[in-house]
Design a protein around this nucleic acid. Structure first.
Lengths: 332, 332
DNA sequence: TTGTAAGCGTTATCAC
DNA sequence: GTGATAACGCTTACAA
């Protein structure tokens, strides 16, 4: 099929009139080569268009330089920004990202992990789903690093990065209470992921603590469209909520649009809304959404630092999502 | 640092009581192995957690299975959805995506391409920027496939996938004209990419053809925020436009928000708007934007089909972006 | 500093 | 169908 003919170190060596090892050393960090040899090698390499074969290099070294990113729904705003941050940080650490698109099933995550093993990835970063222990065990036993972002199950030897979802939800409740809201609701999807559930439970718990009922509605995927449906359901209840905490910004935008355009409610005077993630659209003036900011860059930095450096003792990091005050809650 | 100890074919062979070649054949498409041998190999492999080393395999075969995706601003809605589509299609073709995040500079694209060569990628797909000919020549000479999406410069041997930006822009003009608009404007960024410029020129040309002046404003990056500024500039002109064609949806959303919230204009009765891309947010009821839909899935399918199959004669594909009628243009 | 030689884990070729 | 053996392109002792 495709006849690939890349130039090899041997050819460079011949042209430069040195040995193959000299070429290798020229392109290896901290190897000892004389100025003169290096110069001649570089020159020949340049002329021939030589590039070290990382496949072969990965065979010898115990680092391939590859890190596997495993995620579903890559085009979701929050996910996309996390992937961007991760690739950026990885590249700064001289690693390269392999991107595997899974559906939500744990089976497909397992498949992705197998792929990561096949390419001898130095690490895998899992953003969606939770693979079976059998496969993560192989990863870890093989010496592959594993980073779990916003998953709750543990894996010995893996790094878990989590947010203070529960606390944030409680803060959300307090903020809404202070804004004078009396009837609280939580708009969730049916995805039931750890972080989404933690937000729901945190919010419920805060309600309980203050002796207030929290209406909870769950529907479909974690999308804008679900937000529309959720608003429909919540805002037609006999005791209509005047405060809705949404599982994430996408849902919040849907809820807001339905509340405004369908129920003709004014935000925030008749309905206060809080989201989660602080996606780009939350800042858009049509939404101007009060929400919790995911520390995307910090998450990426933590992950990459951990997997690039010595296996430190830290097994779990909890980062905080700060409340960003905008216009969807009174006062502030 | 990290002690990686993956299990090799040799170990599987020993455990299964067969030769290394038997193991290799078991995992190679269309190799001849007896039922019995295969069974024993699979069993041993399973027990040991063996996975074929794609690095080593890529060394022998002339296919690594790796395809390099090169793009800037990965978290932009359109880009993110294209990346999602590409990874999905690549995976269906048993390829794996490597993701390289560039800034807009052509230099960084060149770096990305070098990386692609280093990992012996079967192909590179460029979504942003345009690398120097010197480096693309190396790619092509090495037998690496090259796909350019929405770039205008040619590279012999590469596949170019383009949209009918010019025609679309002309259609946009006609649609706005038919809606009764009298004063036309184009809101562009300063990115000056081929597709953005083609849209601008197509729109201008259509105006000229109908003897109408088209106001053009360019500002900043291709973002929502730029849209806000562009609206500011366009809507304060002495002859305020009642029709604005925007370089893309992000800008359109910004223009719309500024027009509504700042200038208190009603869409579409006082101002008609057309965007480009048909990002998720264009469907959101706050925008309900009439726009051209990028055939994202088709683009991805074209690209992957081409690079997975025999080097067909086709060097360039022009796909069409269809106009999606929503509520930001009168009539329709 | 340099070259020689022995791997790394595969697959492809070749006898059997 | 199977098992040796020779690549593939690189890194790294080791000896010079």
């Amino acid at each position: 099929m495709s006849r690939k003919i890349f130039v090899s170190a041997k050819e460079v060596a011949e042209r430069a009139g040195v040995s193959r090892s000299a070429v290798s050393r020229t392109f290896t960090q901290g190897a000892s080569v004389s100025q003169e040899t290096r110069r001649r090698v570089i020159e020949a390499a340049e002329a021939l268009g030589y590039h070290v074969n990382h496949l072969a290099r990965g065979l010898m070294r115990d680092e391939s330089g590859i890190v596997c990113l495993i995620a579903a729904e890559l085009d979701t705003p929050y996910r996309a920004s996390l992937i961007r941050a991760l690739t950026r940080h990885l590249q700064s650490a001289s690693k390269i990202a392999m991107l595997v698109n899974t559906d939500r099933s744990d089976e497909s995550v397992g498949q992705a992990l197998r792929l990561a093993i096949s390419y001898r990835a130095d690490a895998s970063i899992i953003l969606s789903g939770m693979p079976a222990r059998s496969i993560t065990d192989i990863c870890l036993k093989s010496g592959q690093r594993l980073v779990l972002i916003n998953r709750d199950e543990e894996r010995d030897g893996a790094l878990m990065i989590n947010l203070n979802d529960r606390d944030a939800a409680q803060r959300a409740f307090l903020a809404l209470l202070r804004a004078g809201c009396r009837s609280f609701a939580f708009a969730n999807s049916e995805a039931l992921t750890p972080s989404l559930m933690a937000r729901e439970e945190g919010f419920r718990e805060a309600g309980r603590k203050h002796g207030m009922e929290v209406a909870v509605e769950r529907f479909g995927a974690t999308t804008y469209e679900s937000g529309l449906v959720l608003a429909q359901r919540l805002l037609t209840r006999e005791s209509r909520p005047d405060a809705i905490f949404c599982a994430n910004d996408l849902i919040a935008c849907g809820v807001m649009d339905a509340a405004r355009h369908q129920f003709k409610l004014d935000i925030p005077s008749q309905l206060c809304l809080i989201g989660f993630d602080d996606i780009e659209q939350a800042k858009w003036s049509s939404y101007n959404l009060t929400t919790f900011a995911q520390p995307v860059d910090e998450i990426a930095a933590e992950a990459v630092t951990w997997l690039a450096h010595a296996p430190s003792q830290v097994r779990s990091r909890k980062l905080v999502a700060e409340l960003v005050w905008r216009g969807s809650v009174r006062g502030g």
